[in-house]
Computed example of a mutant assay.
Amino acid sequence: MTSLTLPTTQARPVLGWLAILGGTASAVAGAIQLILPSDTDPLINANEHVVLTLLAVAFVAWIPGYLTLGTSAGKLGKAAGILAALGCALLTIGMTSTNLHGQDYAWFGVVAVPANLAWLVGSVLLAVATWRTRTLPRWLSIGVALVWVTSIILSQLGGNLIAGVIWCTLGALLTRANRS
């Protein structure tokens, strides 16, 4: 199977466009990070304010996509989608607080470590579930697992560009799923 089974016809385009919005925000953030890497100072500069805002938009927009992919990929997929969505939600809270405060709060690491772990484990398990159930084309299942790696590990090298392309592709599939 290479298309998604979504809960309702009305939800299909909204979920897809949210994924595309998140993918676009991520890609723009990745382009900025590639051209102007700036993760050496604990204080947030103007470029980082823009990047953090774009990534917060991306993560929030991806949450329904993770949940939908999970629901479409069996029990493992459902648990994995919830875990990945939870990680994105927690990271959004941490990034937004950093963005508003101008630097990380002392508690940021307490939130960021489990949030990143949840997002990573959820993404990998979701990739396995979508691979096994053939919910997505296999190459895109691998892409789901790579979103965290490109967004976090490769962020200062423009990795969010890749994550953005993956989510825009997922968004295109979501908007087209179950089309009559």
Rank of each mutant, 00 (worst) to 15 (best):
L154K: 02
W107H: 07
F108T: 11
T169R: 00
M1W: 15
G94E: 10
Q33I: 03
T96N: 10
L34R: 00
C88D: 08
A80W: 09
L125S: 00
G74F: 12
L15S: 05
W148Y: 09
P64W: 13
S155E: 10
A56G: 11
S155L: 09
R134D: 12
L170V: 12
L100F: 15
L4M: 12
Y105G: 15
L154C: 08
G87A: 09
I82L: 10
T24C: 12
M95I: 12
Q103P: 07
A11S: 06
I20C: 07
R12C: 06
V147G: 03
V111G: 04
R176A: 14
L140V: 06
A58T: 08
C168E: 02
G87Y: 14
M95F: 14
A115T: 03
G70V: 11
V113E: 09
T135V: 13
V111I: 12
A46W: 14
L170I: 13
A25R: 04
A84P: 05
T130L: 09
V121T: 11
P7M: 13
V51Q: 06
L69I: 06
L55N: 07
I162D: 00
T24W: 07
I162K: 01
L6Q: 02
T150A: 08
T92L: 05
L174R: 00
L4S: 05
A145G: 05
L15M: 08
A115H: 02
T96S: 12
R176Q: 10
V14C: 04
Q33G: 02
S3I: 08
R12P: 04
G143Y: 02
R176K: 11
A80Q: 01
W107I: 15
V124P: 03
G81D: 00
A106H: 11
I63N: 01
A31L: 10
T150V: 11
N160C: 13
T40Y: 13
A89W: 14
L174H: 00
N47H: 13
Q33R: 08
A58R: 02
L154Y: 14
Q10A: 10
S72C: 08
G158T: 03
P13K: 01
I63R: 00
W131P: 03
I63H: 06
A73Q: 03
D104E: 13
V50D: 04
W139G: 09
T98Q: 02
A27K: 07
T130D: 04
G81F: 12
L76T: 06
L34K: 00
Q10G: 09
A84Q: 04
A115N: 01
L83N: 04
A25G: 02
S151D: 04
V111T: 08
V165Q: 04
N178K: 08
G22E: 04
A58N: 05
L18W: 15
